[in-house]
Computed example of a mutant assay.
Amino acid sequence: MRTDQQPIRITLVAPDGKMGRAITAAAEESDAFSIEPDHGDVLVDFSAPEALQATLDRALAAGVPVLIGTTGLDDHADKRLADAAKTVAILRAANTSLGVAVLSDLVERAAGALSPDWDIEIVEMHHRMKADAPSGTALALGDAAARGRGTPIDAERGRDGTGLKRAEGAIGFASLRGGTVAGDHDVVFAGPDERLILSHRAENRMIFARGALAAARFLHGKPAGLYSMRDVISSE
């Protein structure tokens, strides 16, 4: 709870979407947050890639921080976010689970500790309706592994066919779709005669909603800049 006892007002870009409804439900469980249609303290967007610019324009016009939880953003998104972050606080998260934020940190540390002859493969599974693949979370985990290695990411996606040979230093991605799976992620470090597997299982969409509220609490009152879920878990 904030020291002034006033709840943080959350404005949802897509209140009727799956995440919008989950965040509303999570906020109703706490007197530290309220959902406001407009004029919130923090803007939260889990809508669609094509809505990004309108969301950033809205945040800039209101002078409020914004959480971008949308995945599948195009190649121009990084510049748009960086430009907007010069004026307001922005947190971009492919996954707002606090557990996934910790997993990302562990992946980076493991990739840095293990020698280059350990191959890295990322396997993710989601519900049958998910539109993008690999998942934004899988790609973020790949970025974490590349940071740990200190090298640019060399991604191998959706292998198919014959005569395939894994490129040295590549990070592989495999995507599974089916049922109502909220989100499974495995990062496999395959070395000579041994494997290390770091995993996360999302059992309910509410973990993302609670993480989004933690991110909104972190963003409230923050100066302009670009933030991540690592900043959130570091402040908890």
Results as ranks from 00 to 15, higher is better:
Glu108Pro: 00
Lys86Asp: 12
Asp57Leu: 03
Leu91Met: 07
Ala62Glu: 09
Ser115Gly: 08
Asp117Phe: 03
Gly142Gln: 08
Ala89His: 05
Ala93Trp: 04
Gly112Arg: 05
Ala145Gly: 09
Ala84Gln: 09
Lys79Gln: 11
Gly136Cys: 05
Gly69Phe: 10
Arg128Phe: 08
Val100Asp: 08
Leu114Phe: 15
Ala144Met: 10
Ile90Met: 00
Gly69Asp: 06
Val100Glu: 01
Lys79His: 10
Asp132Tyr: 14
Asp75Met: 05
Ala110Glu: 09
Leu43Phe: 09
Ser47Ala: 14
Ala85Trp: 10
Arg58Pro: 00
Ser104Leu: 13
Arg80Ile: 13
Thr87Phe: 10
Ala84Ser: 10
Ala93Gly: 06
Arg58Ser: 15
Thr71Lys: 06
Ser97Thr: 02
Ala138Asn: 08
Leu141Asn: 01
Leu114His: 10
Ala85Val: 14
Thr87Ser: 11
Gln53Ser: 08
Arg128Met: 08
Ala144Tyr: 02
Leu98Asp: 03
Leu103Gln: 05
Arg128Pro: 01
Ala54Asp: 12
Leu91Ser: 01
Glu108His: 04
Lys130His: 11
Ala89Tyr: 03
Trp118Gln: 10
Thr137Glu: 02
Ile90Cys: 02
Ala82Lys: 07
His126Arg: 12
Ala113Val: 08
Ile90Asp: 00
Arg92Asp: 00
Leu81Phe: 06
Ala110Ser: 12
Val66Trp: 00
Asp78Phe: 11
Val123Ala: 12
Glu50Lys: 13
Asp45Ala: 15
His126Ala: 11
Ala54Gly: 04
Thr55Lys: 03
Pro134Ile: 11
Gln53Val: 15
Ala84Lys: 09
Gly72Cys: 06
Asp45Gly: 09
Ala61Met: 09
Gly142Thr: 08
Lys130Phe: 06
Ala111Asn: 03
Ser115Met: 10
Pro116Lys: 09
His76Gln: 12
Phe46Ile: 13
Gly99Ala: 14
Leu52Tyr: 08
Ala51Gln: 12
Thr96Trp: 02
Ala93Lys: 03
Phe46Val: 13
Ala54Trp: 07
Gly142Trp: 03
Pro65Glu: 07
Gly112Ala: 08
Asp143Ala: 15
Val88Ser: 00
Ala138His: 06
Ser97Glu: 05
Val88Tyr: 02
Ala48Asn: 06
Ala133Phe: 13
Ala101Arg: 13
Lys130Met: 11
Ala133Asn: 04
Pro65Cys: 07
Ile90Thr: 06
Arg80Val: 11
Ala54Cys: 05
Val88Lys: 04
Thr71Glu: 01
Leu73Tyr: 08
Gly112Trp: 12
Ile90Lys: 01
Leu103Arg: 00
